[in-house]
Design a protein around this nucleic acid. Sequence first.
DNA 1: TTACAATTTGAAAGCGCTTTGGTACTTTGG
DNA 2: CCAAAGTACCAAAGCGCTTTCAAATTGTAA
Lengths: 341, 341
Amino acid sequence: MNLKQLAKKLDLSQTTVSRALNDYPEVSEATRARVKAGAQKHGYSPNIAARNLAMGHAMAIGHVIPVSTQYEIMNPIFSDLIAGASSVYAEHGYELVLSIVDNAEEEEVYRKLKARQSVAGVVLHSPEMSDNRIEFLTNLKLPFAVHGRVSDHTAPYCWVDVNNRSAFRRATELLLDLGHRRIGLINGIETKDFAFRRRQGYEDALAARDVAVDPAIMHSGLMTEEEGYKAVVEMLALPTPPTAFLLSSMVSAFGAKRGIEESGLVLGQDISVVTHDDELSYLGNSGESPIFTSTLSSVREAGRLLAENLIHHINNPSEPLREELLKADLRIGKSTGPAPA
Amino acid sequence: MNLKQLAKKLDLSQTTVSRALNDYPEVSEATRARVKAGAQKHGYSPNIAARNLAMGHAMAIGHVIPVSTQYEIMNPIFSDLIAGASSVYAEHGYELVLSIVDNAEEEEVYRKLKARQSVAGVVLHSPEMSDNRIEFLTNLKLPFAVHGRVSDHTAPYCWVDVNNRSAFRRATELLLDLGHRRIGLINGIETKDFAFRRRQGYEDALAARDVAVDPAIMHSGLMTEEEGYKAVVEMLALPTPPTAFLLSSMVSAFGAKRGIEESGLVLGQDISVVTHDDELSYLGNSGESPIFTSTLSSVREAGRLLAENLIHHINNPSEPLREELLKADLRIGKSTGPAPA
DNA sequence: TTACAATTTGAAAGCGCTTTGGTACTTTGG
DNA sequence: CCAAAGTACCAAAGCGCTTTCAAATTGTAA
């Protein structure tokens, strides 16, 4: 069933049927109701390709997930982020087009998405501290929203981010307040903007209390279970090992926990741990007394906001670009305690 | 730059340019080369909407992820599955369209995808033991491939699955061979086909050794860290607690580990654990001596196969539907040992 | 040379929608 | 009562491709 057939069935022109379905004002309420009922009855849904062609743009948002061939890792936060964004897209009648691409091909993919008009905008994932994708997309005139920010980029763009720096400053301060002076940092890859900011927060807090920053207890790498484990085991083997750790992800925090326990130490007693928690749906860390003390920010909520802001930007290109800084709460769990004497 | 403009630039008709780019035989090699070079030079990419409209179908595959509103959980395997499938789609020039929908609306979504011609086929996720989506899609004449199988459905359809039943039989046998007689099962939701089959494998092995099946040490639920933890803690509190556990996911296995350790028991000594491992990229369980003994099957590989088989089916509708049963390996790790005396 | 087939190219139709630029009819204000 | 404005509808053009059908060119056999 296409528009023509439906129009014939209703004894109306295609024009009127189209306008009725798309809520244009120049249709009487009576016919609009009749048309909508008819469409429902005959199971009519407009052909997307025809609609996109006629309108000159697709009702779709692209998510381009870069995966470096070096580490073939899918960031686990991505599924929750998409889940959040997806619900907003559905509300607004947008589809979600997903591309998983090698770092090196990312710009080519954006160029194609633009040329083929297969999306109305894109969400940028995993921004680097210094990231030329922002400028690239701006020049390409492809609307976009970034999950995170780019420290080196000053011109305005649409983003949603967590206050990584102050969250990690507070987390570090908490550990300092508990008497810890050797605090290991097990961070994500520090060319990534979020990781860089977290390290800044960590260093800020140490500097404010005149605690020296020691590269030997600062690790930057993948946020896997294994990597968390290894980093902790290595640092615990140092002559003056940390008494506390600050982690960038729940997944690596589980690895850290394993490393601590295998070293015969008790988490929350001998060793304290604070981790960032993206509130992934399958890694609960809540309840009365969560496993880990954490800086907390829902990545699903970030997905929702990204989607809303991007769609707003697409529909109102002249309005200023929205920026949204989410604040991460600090939640006390069982993994922190006073530094051992 | 569109086809018309490119054709003018090359002093050729749209027809010839289109044919040259799409590798039709009736174009001389000389002009084909010239056309391709021209397209490259001018950064021409065909407008997807126009192409889809002209061809009558989209070069896109839909993934419809059902999320029950009851438990707002995104299954973590989904990102790795998509990563696998995605690479195959890219090779074949397909896009990936993602919908995350409430269970109740799933059929409606398929109907729309079909009516709007926005995908050439779909991948079905998370099949139930008895699942009417198979029949629904067959009737709808929308090509599909299932990640998993549907026990209650006999007619042929395209699927890729792991031999869940025999994997869990072998895993159970391993524990029995180690002398365990009280083996707790912490399974996924058993209306799901994979979970049902795993339980069958578990029961098969017990029956073969005349070990009674005890519902008190069989749990069916979400595969979250929390759920694994709780189930283990509960079972360990029983008058005759299990000496071993069989888990359906690495994530819940981490919860199980936590529960065991909090109960003051040593994993791999006092209590043995075998888990299924989907080889998610951020949850490594490999190396010389993996954390968990596991039944092992790469969900990323399953994604690749699903994509290949579905595309094959779309391009060759008359050929028989492909079915693929992956076998899960059993890998010994540190979490299993002889039953305590 | 002629006739016929094979190769290479092009004009134009059509995919199913949106939107422009009308027309016909109704209402309103003076 | 008439002109002007408003309301409700429609015919047809156009979005940028693919593909059908036909034409032009070249090659081959008689």
